[in-house]
Design a protein around this nucleic acid. Structure first.
Length: 475
DNA sequence: CGGCCATTTCA
DNA sequence: GAAATGGCC
């Protein structure tokens, strides 16, 4: 069976370059396959915005693979059944796939490996989604790192990751035993016009990822230390959705960014952001309860006050806090929110509005094109104060001060909250404080054109600290 | 990857 | 009296 074909099972590694699974499978006759598998993912099935991305990414990947002689087979169903069945029909000796570290994916891969093995075939999982595999990194006590700073130091101390693999020029594809589904038949695109503006901001697919990486390193990376915190500027890399779907590997990013500078300066800061992604993924690997349970167990008794109306006001960008509302509306329109504003918006929901962090996480999961179980869960726990390396609960963002500091010219708020556009900078981040003549001049009636604050500015912080004391008393 | 407030420092 | 500093929540 030396000429037995192999399956290349693509999941979250939708690229040709630096793809170890493709590299291994592409040595012989190969059938690339993608399976839309919502069953195994359960409640963490890909959210609506990420599905939009996936649709377009698969379109580009399918074209690139077909060009090289191995068209992509699209299927839907439970991969625990679909992959072994396809392997049997093609007579494949091996299935190659990139490692996928989410808890549900680990369980699924174990089941697939078992089913294949029972028929004398094998599942080969390849590295490449992370810079360092989670099993490989331990602290002085032999335990996984729980704090970011020593984690990042340890990763940096490992030195350069291996150089990226080239993309194959030609592939020896086999004829699939079935026609599979057309891309449209996967039903990934939203029915409503919600995502209509996404194409103005994103180019899913490997070429778009490379273009974005090069553009960022040429334009914004040098000023990243400052620019990354200004939501009104295009100062971040915006690589997160590309990284989530594996259109780009972290070691490709590393090797593209590192040559330009040492550990200091904009590129060093940028690489440390890439390490936050790495840290979140390691955390999820070692603490699979991360999406569901607070890592600090005392927070299980935190007295959240679930309120559907408050949650909805936050989701729709109608909290009455301009910087937060701008962020929530950016999220709805672009499928993405600037990182600085994510922190402010999340902090307001959890601390001032006393809404459960998992409700916020669920909304982000459905609306972010970069929704990623590790990053999303870890960062929400960080904001909520219940993560291992979390911001202390009493560290409560003041949305007015944050707005003044990071959107001082008001470009961001004016872009997404047009009803406040004519307010002068002085009052833009706290319209409730503006004198009546100023509001009149700007054509704003609070409560009609723009909501009054969902929680009174002077009481939000006190409420949050009172709730924290409530939790400690309940221990 | 804070904010608040008391206190100090310097114009 | 504004701006910087430091302890505490």
């Amino acid at each position: 069976m030396t000429d037995a074909p192999t399956l290349l099972w693509l999941r979250q590694d939708l690229r040709l370059a630096d793809n170890p699974a493709l590299h291994a499978a592409g040595a012989g006759r190969v059938l690339p396959v993608f399976v839309l598998d919502d069953a195994a993912a359960g409640r963490w099935a890909t959210g609506a915005a990420a599905r939009w991305w996936l649709h377009h990414s698969l379109a580009r990947l399918g074209a690139a693979l077909a060009e090289r002689g191995a068209p992509l087979l699209l299927l839907r169903g439970d991969a625990r059944r679909v992959i072994p069945a396809l392997a049997a029909r093609t007579g494949a000796a091996a299935v190659h796939a990139g490692r996928h570290h989410a808890p549900w994916a680990r369980a699924r891969d174990a089941a697939v490996a078992g089913a294949l093995q029972a028929e004398g075939r094998r599942l080969e999982l390849h590295e490449g989604a992370l810079l360092v595999e989670p099993e490989r990194l331990r602290n002085g006590q032999g335990r996984p790192y729980a704090i970011y700073a020593p984690f990042a130091r340890a990763v940096m101390a490992l030195g350069e990751p291996a150089p990226p693999l080239p993309a194959p020029r030609r592939l020896n594809g086999i004829k699939p035993p079935e026609a599979g589904l057309k891309l449209d038949e996967l039903g990934l695109l939203p029915r409503r016009a919600w995502a209509a503006a996404f194409p103005d901001f994103w180019t899913p697919g490997e070429a778009g990822a490379q273009a974005r990486l090069r553009g960022f390193l040429e334009d914004a990376a040098g000023d990243y230390d400052r620019g990354r915190d200004i939501p009104g500027e295009d100062g971040t890399s915006r690589l997160s959705p590309h990284l989530h779907w594996g259109e780009l590997s972290p070691r490709q990013v590393w090797h593209a960014a590192a040559p330009h500078s040492g550990p200091q300066g904009g590129r060093g800061t940028f690489l440390r952001e890439i390490l936050w992604r790495e840290f979140s993924h390691h955390l999820l690997w070692h603490r699979p309860e991360l999406p569901e349970q607070p890592l600090r167990r005392t927070y299980a008794s935190f007295p959240y006050q679930p309120d559907r109306a408050l949650l909805r006001a936050w989701q729709r960008g109608r909290t009455g806090y301009p910087i937060v509302d701008a962020g929530m509306r950016q999220l709805w329109r672009h499928g993405w929110m600037h990182n600085r504003v994510r922190m402010i918006a999340a902090s307001l929901l959890v601390k001032q509005l006393l809404q459960p962090w998992w409700d916020g996480a669920a909304w982000f999961w459905d609306t972010l094109v970069d929704a990623d179980l590790a990053n999303n869960s870890a960062n929400w726990q960080w904001v909520a104060g219940c993560g291992t390396d979390a911001t202390p609960y009493f560290r409560i963002f003041n949305p007015v001060l944050q707005g003044r500091k990071f959107d001082s010219g008001g470009a961001y708020v004016r872009a997404f909250v047009p009803e406040l556009a004519r307010l002068p900078d002085r009052w833009l981040h706290e319209p409730w404080s503006a004198p009546a003549p100023v509001l009149r001049e700007a054509g704003v009636v609070l409560g009609r054109d723009y909501p009054a604050p969902a929680v009174a500015p002077e009481s939000g912080r006190a409420r949050a600290l009172a709730a924290l004391r409530g939790m400690k008393a309940a221990e």
